[in-house]
């Protein structure tokens, strides 16, 4: 609890602040949007937090989102694949990407930053290649499939929980159990803290690191799928641009240290929510110009990280 108390307080305060300054903040429509966007980015953030816990980084998330987001409609509409097959193929490719990253990092001993930076360039490049740079989408077809992202679990007449948010809760629960209750979760924390000591304790560190990249890419694929099902239009040249940075920012806000070894799923999800509430605030507050969005988000992130560091330093003393 204490690990994410800070960010939880931040979220609650931001939430209250925004509901005061933004007229329509509490409208059902806006709350649904907020939950849906938190869910989409939250899934990516949970994925990257696995990698960050091992002390690694994955910069290719946005490009995997692009690959899946453009690839799935491309397979379905241009090549008439059954949707189920296309989705399975997307996840298989994402897992292969994770395995490939893991192989390069653990066996060839390349740095995660470099490996995934190349991935960032390659997967987007490949997507632009096979789609011939054309915008992908489902048009007005496949609305049943799109329910996965656009559907709602109606709670009241006006308000419903978006399906992606339910998916986030499920994925979050699995991630939480994995990290806190299983042997593998313990191994991830151990090796993120001290890979050499973990290896000396008989842990298959290489396999565990690879697993974290597979999880990260798979969740990026799930995110990419939901993004395209929701948005229905993906330009290969910029679909998912910078999403890895949003995911990393949410993970860091949620208490993951880029040095590895720490992080909580709940904190990361709250971190993703904070980013979305912030953006929402910028949108709703008329005196905040929307092109200042990056400035505000970056500034708040920096303040949060500084505060976190100061608190930790005090605890250490």
């Amino acid at each position: 609890m204490k690990k994410f108390l800070g960010i939880l307080v931040t979220l609650v305060l931001l939430y209250i602040l925004t509901s005061i300054i933004g007229d329509n903040f509490l409208s059902a429509y806006n709350q649904e949007q907020l939950l849906k966007r938190t869910a989409l980015y939250g899934l990516l953030a949970i994925g990257v937090s696995f990698v960050i816990i091992t002390g690694g980084i994955d910069l290719s998330i946005g490009s995997v989102v692009c690959l899946v987001g453009c690839g799935v409609p491309w397979l379905i509409t241009q090549h008439q694949w059954p949707p189920v097959m296309a989705v399975i193929a997307a996840f298989l490719v994402a897992m292969m990407i994770g395995l490939w990253h893991g192989f390069l990092i653990t066996k060839v001993k390349l740095q995660p930053f470099v490996v995934t930076l190349c991935g960032l360039l390659m997967y987007r490049g490949a997507t632009r290649g096979f789609t011939e740079d054309k915008t992908q989408g489902f048009g007005i077809t496949h609305s049943e499939l799109r329910e996965l992202a656009t559907g709602k679990l109606q709670l009241t007449e006006q308000f419903g929980l978006p399906v992606p948010f339910l998916l986030l809760l499920i994925a979050g629960a699995f991630a939480w159990i994995f990290l806190n209750k299983t042997v593998w979760g313990r191994y991830l924390f151990a090796l993120g803290n001290n890979e050499e000591a973990a290896r000396l304790s008989g842990i298959h560190t290489d396999r565990m690191v690879t697993l974290s990249y597979v999880i990260c890419s798979s969740l990026a694929a799930l995110g990419g799928l939901l993004f395209i099902l929701d948005g229905n239009s993906a330009q290969p040249s910029d679909f998912g641009n910078f999403y890895e940075l949003y995911a990393i920012a949410a993970a860091v806000l949620g208490g993951c240290s880029l040095r590895g070894g720490s992080g909580t799923v709940i904190g990361v999800v709250i971190g993703a929510a904070v980013m979305q509430v912030l953006k929402n605030m910028i949108n709703l507050a008329d005196w905040l110009k929307s092109h200042l969005e990056f400035l505000v988000v970056g500034g708040v992130l920096l303040v949060a990280v500084i505060a976190d560091e100061l608190v930790k330093r005090r605890v250490r003393k």
């Binding site: 299983t182 042997v183 313990r186 924390f189 151990a190 001290n194 973990a198």
Partner: peptide, 27 residues
């Protein structure tokens, strides 16, 4: 090389034998 400094005493003590004593995938 010996310790995971940010894990606690319990977790460090059980680290090497964790897999052997696990219940399925669970600690």
């Amino acid at each position: 090389k010996g310790l995971i400094l940010d894990l606690n005493v319990e977790q460090n003590t059980s680290l090497a034998s964790l897999g052997e004593n696990a219940k399925g995938p669970f600690v």
